[in-house]
Amino acid sequence: MGTPGHDSDLLQPLLDGDRRALARSLTLVESRGPGFRNLLRGIAPRLGRAHRVGVTGAPGVGKSSLVAALVATARNNGMSIAVLAVDPTSPFTGGALLGDRVRMTDHVGDEGVFVRSMASRGALGGLSTATGDALDVLDAAGFDLILTETVGAGQVDVEVAHESETTLVLFAPGAGDAIQAMKSGLMEVADLWVVNKADDVRAEKVRADLVGSLSLHEPPDDLEERVVLTSAKDGSGVGDLLEKLCARRAELESSGARGDLARGRIRRRLTAAARDLVSERLLGSAADSLIDAVVTGERSVHDAAEDILRTDDGGRS
C-alpha cells in the first residue's frame, strides 16, 4: 500500500488498517497538528469496537511485563491487540525516556499487534492529555483489545480509570505496604486487582492481605474472583486474567453499562476540550477588553468569565 503523503490523506488508510497511517495519525492527534480535528471527526462513526483496558500500579510492579504477557496470550486466542504505553516526560527538559518497548519486542511481522510509546508531556494523573484521542485512533484502526499502560502511578493517579472500560491495578510482593498507601486512591478505581510476580513466594500473602483489606468496603461475594494472581515471568494466571477481561467485556455489553461508561468518558473529554478552547481564547489579546473591564471595576471576574462563554468570538467584540 502506498504511503499517505499528507496528514489529510490519513483517514482512509487508517480505517483500512495501514500501520504507517496509524502511526502517523497517533503523532497527529498527540501533537494537535494541522487537521487533527478533521481526522477525529472522520473516525467518530467507527468508534466503540475495542475493549479499552487500563493497566496501572506503582513503579516496578511489572506493568510492562504483564502487558507483554497479555499481548502474547491475546494473540494465542486470536484477538488483535494494541498497547499505548505512557512514560513520564521530564518537567525540567521536556525530554522522556520511553522504555516499555524493551519488554514487548516479540511479534514482529504480526499485523495483530501494535505498540506505541507515549510521553506524558506535562499531564498529571498518569497519562498524557492526548491519551483519549490516541485511544480513539487505535479503536478506529480495528483492534479488539487496547491496553493503556500508565506511568508508575501514585495514590491519586486515577486518570486511567476515566479513559478505560476496565481498570487493572497491579501489586507485587516486596513493594512494602503499597496496599496501605494506595487505599484511598487507585484501590477504588480497580475493576480487577492483579497481584503480579506470583512466582515469588510472598505473592500469596499479598493476595490474602489485599482481599482482607478490600473486604472492608467491597461487596464480599465475588471479591476472591476479582483478585487475580499472575506471573508475567512464567505466564501463570495470565490466561485466567484474559478470560476475566473478556467476561467483563461481555457483561458490560449485555447490562448496558458499556454505553454509560462511554457517556461518562465523553462527558469528561468534552469538558476538557471545552476548557482547552476557552484557554486558547484567553491566551490571545481577545481577553484584553474583558481584563480591562475587570480592572476598572465594571465587571467581576465571574461576570467576565460568563461573557467569554456567551460570545462566539470569545469576547473580542
Binding site: 516526560t89 522522556a96 525516556l97 518497548r101 524493551v102 519486542t105 514482529v108
Partner: peptide, 17 residues
C-alpha cells in the same frame, strides 16, 4: 532525553526487522 527529545529505547539483541 536530557536534550529534550523523546527517546524510545528498545534494548539489546534486536534484529533490523
Amino acid at each position: 532525553r536530557d536534550a529534550g527529545m523523546e527517546v524510545i529505547y528498545t534494548g539489546l539483541h534486536q534484529t533490523p526487522e
